[in-house]
Write a protein that binds this DNA or RNA. Structure first.
Lengths: 339, 339
DNA sequence: AATTTCACCGGTAACGTTACCGAAAACGTC
DNA sequence: GACGTTTTCGGTAACGTTACCGGTGAAATT
């Protein structure tokens, strides 16, 4: 049976002083004698007192809770971002309520509808990939709830956003393939409608254009983010009359999927078909041949997002910021022609 | 600026009825006319009413929050367990507050100290690996807070526990190596002091004993759970005068680390030295040669743990249960002598 | 000595919600 | 038509905490 936790009243009664004095003593040394304060602190420790966040939240109209909305947690990128978020939240005494949407727009909506914003100080969100409609987020923001988007941002929603430099990363990845001698470069893109899918595609296109290479519509395939998508996409590419000689994948998992398909077809990645990914997922170093990629600053994105949100929560007239963090090319075996 | 959310009082005022009636209408059709109820529901929707969980939590002495304590989230096993937990919690309307300990006992303690159990309905925890002292957990349980341990359990704490069948999994893994013709089998173990490290070690030892194979003390290395640990451990093994011809690693990441070390030394996994892991991390299928392993029911462990906790929260006189879920041998290339 | 100042403390109301009890109205029964 | 029963509602207190204001006594000032 659940025992009764010691409250501020219990301390007051035990010490024969008033609850207001105890309350003051417990959080700040304002209007309270040093001795009294020490007395209260000692008694609180003795009774194993824990503040009731429901009560403080009620009167101060703020819990110390922040909701985090993620498409998934079982992948390197999001779990690393979360770890970064967590680091900052932990240091500032905030709790993180994690909701996973499974990349399902309906579930995302359900979760948002069930949130109690009266017991939430803010939100960190990476939207699900099929969410075309983002009105629900705008509503929340209009209600004055601090929200920070990261990675997958809702473009037309007016609030802070943190992301990696998708355009330049994609540009650099594509240019790297070109520098290595590949000429017929395909792109395994993400789902349509996401800002960062579009940005990476644009970086790819502009790099091709700069080097006067042809853009083949059939070499650009939009599909999901999973490994299987990359696997299928490569098979589709290989049925084309005109086959590419290199692949830039929107993320490492799709690149890995493509490499597995190549392995089955006895095609050697790098030597015959160059492959580069995006993320720097640990598997990219483990797979053989190892996968060249653009490293994303996942941990940093988490840290910065959370820091921004906390500023937003604390400052009264906070103006939304957009932060873009650079990626970094990591050259490995999958883009080396001669090994 | 944060706007004021509609409360139950606003609804009452707008409809010119009492708050108690609104309260009753809002949650259950008890003692309230159907028309009145519909009126309230409509008005609530119109005003975009959201219940204040701080208030309900205060009066009912229970939020709908469950704390989840994990050593890390950036790995396949824990993130999958969390996904399972999340599935059940979502269906029952519970929020998950995720705390990551980074496998640091001090941080674990800090987190626990800062928890407000008055606004927590229960806890799901996998203890950090260096936590020898688990008194703090016992205190919490004595205070009547429902707690369920999973995977890394605190042995002497009296509460529900959910884990995979470490002993039999390890036994099966070792026996598989033996069946494949390996005879000098080493074990890359986890840190001392953890129940499941001990169980896997025992399974390994008993399998050797059953088949009358020698137990070499120097072939059993205790270290961390990371890939680097596996890498270093293998190097240490290979400096031994008497080298093993197979390795059973306590998890896939250490097995992968060992395989990477082998790769550098031009040793071919499987052919020369058999390797088997534990977990069925997705990398085990991606790495080449692919890694044989014991698949852990991670998702199931999460589901069952959460379900058990919810039962614990709801039933008044709940008796602690221990659930052990079986693993499954997955045979891949790293244990095939002739390929 | 009278007054002002200051440090410290207590009482009350409030935050949004639910539990509990009593009251009023509507209904049925004889 | 008097009575009991049922349905439906309202008022009050409480959950644990903080904000606000007012009061007490001692010290400092004149």
């Amino acid at each position: 049976m659940r025992r009764h936790y010691a409250t501020i009243k219990d301390i007051a009664r035990a010490l024969n002083i008033s609850v207001s004095t105890v309350s003051r003593a417990l959080r700040d040394t304002y209007d309270v004698n040093a001795e009294t304060r020490q007395m209260v602190l000692d008694k609180a420790a003795e009774l194993n007192y824990r503040p009731n966040f429901n009560a403080t939240g009620l009167v101060k109209n703020s819990s110390h809770n922040v909701a985090v909305l993620l498409p998934a947690i079982t992948n390197y990128y999001f779990s690393t971002v979360f770890t970064g978020i967590q680091e900052v939240a932990y240091r500032h005494g905030y709790n993180l309520i994690l909701h996973v949407t499974n990349d399902d727009a309906e579930r995302e909506l359900n979760i948002i509808r069930s949130l109690s914003f009266s017991s939430l100080d803010g939100m960190l969100v990476s939207v699900s990939s099929q969410a075309d409609a983002c009105d629900h987020f705008q509503e929340i923001i209009d209600d004055g709830v601090p929200v920070v988007f990261f990675d997958r941002v809702a473009e037309h929603v007016g609030t802070s956003k943190v992301m990696q430099d998708d355009y330049n990363g994609a540009f650099e990845a594509t240019e790297h393939l070109i520098a290595k001698g590949y000429r017929r470069i395909a792109h395994l893109a993400g789902p349509q409608g996401l800002t960062f899918t579009a940005n990476r595609l644009q970086g790819y296109l502009d790099a091709l254009r700069k080097h006067k290479l042809p853009v083949q519509e059939s070499w650009i395939i939009h599909s999901g983010f999973g490994q299987e998508s990359g696997y299928q996409d490569f098979q589709q590419l290989w049925e084309l009359p005109e086959k590419p000689d290199a692949i830039f994948a929107v993320n490492d998992r799709k690149a890995v999927g493509a490499m597995l398909a190549m392995k089955e077809m006895k095609i050697i990645p790098g030597k015959e078909v160059g492959v580069i990914g995006f993320t720097n997922d640990p598997v990219s170093a483990i797979i053989s041949p190892s996968l060249s990629t653009i490293a994303e600053p996942a941990y940093e994105i988490g840290r910065v997002s959370c820091q921004l949100l906390l500023n937003h929560i604390r400052k009264k007239n906070f103006v939304a910021e957009e932060v873009v963090l650079p990626g970094k090319l990591i050259e490995r075996e999958s883009t080396q022609r001669n090994r």
